[in-house]
């Protein structure tokens, strides 16, 4: 809060806009996680939180600290690169785990039915 008074309006406007946009996108992504029906639809909701929501807030943070400290502060790029490299791995592993579990459950149910039929 103490630095906010020193921020000129041309920097404050984009920072505020990016923060509001990032927050809204984050909440929309988790809304998708909350209200969609099946798991395979739900996995697409958090993807927008991770990419665009996090991206907006990281850019806002970079802009804010660069202007208030009047030097280039770009170490948020590290978080951006890390998240962009790891989020695909996470979603792929969860998707695979879900698919294997569903296939296994259906196979078990089928063999159970067969045993009952005999």
């Amino acid at each position: 809060m103490n630095f906010a008074e020193t921020l000129p309006w041309w920097a404050a406007l984009p920072v505020a806009f990016l923060l509001v946009l990032g927050g809204l996108i984050a909440v929309i992504g988790t809304l998708g996680l909350f209200r969609l029906q099946s798991f395979y639809q739900r996995i697409h909701g958090p993807a927008i939180t991770v990419t665009l929501g996090a991206g907006c807030i990281l850019v806002a943070s970079m802009l804010y600290f660069s202007v208030t400290q009047s030097r280039l502060v770009i170490h948020e790029l590290l978080i951006a690169a890390f998240v962009l490299m790891t989020a695909p791995v996470v979603s792929m592993l969860i998707m695979r785990a879900a698919l294997y579990r569903d296939l296994r459950a259906s196979r078990e149910a089928a063999s159970h039915d067969e045993a009952k039929g005999m």
């Binding site: 921020l7 406007l13 505020a16 923060l19 927050g23």
Partner: peptide, 12 residues
């Protein structure tokens, strides 16, 4: 600008 920024941060 300060009030605008703090409102935006609170909203986010």
């Amino acid at each position: 600008t300060a009030t605008l920024l703090s409102a935006a941060i609170l909203f986010a």
